[in-house]
């Protein structure tokens, strides 16, 4: 019985809703789409990077990047860091999806359910205003 249980936990399925990302990614650094955009811009045009995967990703990050400058991204990171318990994954999802209400945030990032609406809402408001007032 114990061995069966043991095996089951070993094969535990990955599930972003409960922040189970598998052994390889549980502690890996998450990147915001906006950060990927800046990193890839430096790579563009260099030899050897030109693959369909690379080009599709460039197209994607240009379309869905929410914050345009490194300064704003720094501010976003700092703001989200103030809520000290957010995991890397939650931080990146909040900044990538920019939900406007606490209810929406909890619905699209289920692991946020442990926070009070009053805790989340000011954070989301701040993200929204940073998005609006960047040049």
């Amino acid at each position: 019985m114990t061995t069966r249980l043991g095996r089951r936990t070993h094969l535990e399925e990955e599930d972003a809703a409960t922040l189970k990302l598998g052994a390889e990614f549980n502690n890996a650094g998450c990147l915001l789409i906006s950060e990927v955009k800046i990193l890839l811009k430096e790579k563009e045009g260099k030899p050897g990077v030109d693959s369909p995967v690379f080009n599709k990703t460039v197209e994607y990050v240009n379309m869905f990047s929410k914050f345009s400058t490194e300064d704003t991204i720094g501010l976003v990171r700092a703001t989200l860091r103030r809520q000290a318990n957010l995991t890397q994954f939650e931080t990146a999802q909040l900044a990538n999806l920019c939900p406007s209400t606490a209810e929406e945030a909890k619905s699209i990032i289920p692991s946020l359910a442990k926070y009070d609406d009053d805790e989340l809402q000011p954070l989301l408001d701040e993200l929204q205003s940073m998005r609006r007032f960047q040049d």
């Binding site: 399925e13 990955e14 599930d15 972003a16 809703a17 409960t18 990302l21 990614f25 990147l31 990927v36 990193l39 890839l40 990703t57 994607y60 379309m63 869905f64 999802q93 990538n96 999806l97 699209i108 990032i109 289920p110």
Partner: peptide, 15 residues
């Protein structure tokens, strides 16, 4: 490297 991996339960934007 920059890697992209989708997870079950993750919300994403797409075209």
């Amino acid at each position: 490297a920059i890697v992209f991996k989708p997870f079950k339960g993750e919300v994403l934007d797409g075209v």
